[in-house]
């Protein structure tokens, strides 16, 4: 039973990276496809579309930082359940935020392609989604610190 609890703890440590990577892959793929489509329709400004389509990659970076923070905590049967809960739930939050951010970026690319003057404003929904990923990231670090204490 103890081994199982420890295994769950390690699952929690790696979950933010794994789930964050899944979310970022889907989000960047969706946004990248939209950017490729937009490039067929416009004559210039390709760079900003490609740059924007990389926005959902931040979630996997947050996941890596969380993984290193959680991995630094001594893994015992007391700390493992906490690491499992924090890691898994943060990973799920990062994954979904990346997927939906990709869709928001695709919509922003579509809108700004037709109306270049709304480019800045059209990124706002994707930036708000990014804010939720940052919440999950910051409070995962705070809660992780509580476990180690």
């Amino acid at each position: 039973m103890e081994d199982f609890i420890i295994a769950l703890g390690w699952l929690g440590v790696f979950a933010p990276v794994a789930l964050g990577a899944v979310g970022s892959a889907i989000g960047c793929s969706v946004a990248g496809q939209a950017a490729c489509g937009a490039m067929l329709d416009v004559e210039s400004g390709y760079g900003k579309f490609v740059g924007l389509s990389a926005m959902p990659s931040s979630q996997v970076i947050y996941g890596i930082v969380i993984m290193f923070t959680l991995a630094g905590i001594n893994m015992t049967t007391n700390s493992a359940p906490g690491l499992f809960g924090i890691g898994l739930l943060t990973g799920i939050a990062l994954m979904y935020s990346a997927v939906y951010q990709g869709q928001a970026v695709a919509a922003a690319i579509n809108a700004s392609k037709n109306k270049p003057e709304v480019f800045g404003l059209s990124i706002a929904p994707a930036a708000i989604v990014e804010g939720f990923a940052v919440f999950a990231f910051v409070f995962a670090l705070v809660m992780g610190a509580n476990i180690s204490a």
């Binding site: 889907i26 793929s29 969706v30 496809q33 939209a34 950017a35 490729c36 489509g37 937009a38 067929l40 329709d41 695709a106 690319i109 579509n110 392609k113 037709n114």
Partner: peptide, 16 residues
């Protein structure tokens, strides 16, 4: 995620 196949096509079409 079957819907993702339509992103490239729809963003490549000019707005009406």
């Amino acid at each position: 995620m079957a819907d993702t196949a339509y992103y490239t096509l729809l963003t490549s079409l000019p707005h009406i």
